[in-house]
Design a protein around this nucleic acid. Structure first.
Lengths: 147, 147
DNA sequence: CAAATATATTTGATATATCAATTAAAAACA
DNA sequence: TGTTTTTAATTGATATATCAAATATATTTG
């Protein structure tokens, strides 16, 4: 059985697009904020909106596994963007708080992020984006429904 | 400046879709072929179609950097899917050959890959896919053209 | 209540990602 | 030709990805 080479398949382009966007976004963020990755920025944004999140919940939101999240939070604590304290209602979990240093980062991020999205999506209509999201939703469902 | 939470942005969905597809594809591949990752399979497919590829060229095709490629090929040599030999026309490069064990894998992969794509793209029209590719192309260009 | 099960997090092992520095060979150049 | 500049690949350091096993606490169940 022969198949076309991978470059001809839509997933190849999806992979490339997200990687180029990440590379671009990281470059722009690094110009404005020292020592923060795209994913660390995402974690800060989620924690700001939902301060009660556990590590496991954050992991699910940013599509990482729990082990990775442990190590990412470790690092963010070491770099003083976050502090951990045990949750007294459920001593298996941590309360995770954003430090002042983390808040400073959070102030700088939004304009950069908005600008990045704007640049990456230039010349693309709302309609096209919705169309893409519709297809991506189908792919997600296809890949996650059992069997 | 306030921004919407990341889940509301198309890139979030792109990220999720490609991750779910990778997870699904890896699961299906692992059922049929022992000890091969999606990326290692991709490398085999590219080498089959273009046997002259250098490590650097393969890296570009699968969106990895040279250092990662060195280590991935190291591993694939150790697992006996590939053999390296120096290229006598350009002694900085390697000739990379697929071993018999690698060829056996290559025989098993295509049906699984075709089935995976079929499942992941079920209920999505050619037209929709082309639409998505068009938008992704714009994003890629937006993120890679300077400034 | 005690035992079994489930859950949140951590740890270890191995692979991959990324950046910067290094090495060896090729190509350009003066 | 000898020197400089490029290029392909490697190495080291650090971070992240992934899986399996371990730990500590909660919850369920008999």
């Amino acid at each position: 059985m022969s198949i076309e080479i991978p470059t001809q398949v839509v997933f190849y382009k999806v992979e490339r697009a997200i990687k180029e966007y990440r590379k671009y976004a990281q470059k722009k963020i690094s110009e404005k904020v020292q020592d923060i990755t795209v994913d660390q920025g995402l974690i800060l944004l989620f924690l700001k909106h939902y301060p009660e999140l556990s590590q496991k919940e954050i992991a699910a939101l940013v599509f990482k596994d729990n082990a990775s999240m442990t190590r990412m939070i470790d690092l963010m604590v070491k770099k003083e963007y976050l502090v951990r304290s045990t949750n007294e209602e459920d001593r298996r979990r941590y309360n995770i708080e954003i430090t002042d240093k983390g808040k400073t980062v959070l102030e700088k991020l939004p304009p950069v992020i908005l600008e990045n999205r704007k640049k990456a999506l230039a010349g693309i209509s709302i309609d096209e984006i919705e169309q893409v999201e519709k297809v991506l939703d189908k792919i997600i469902i296809n890949c996650t429904t059992n069997q």
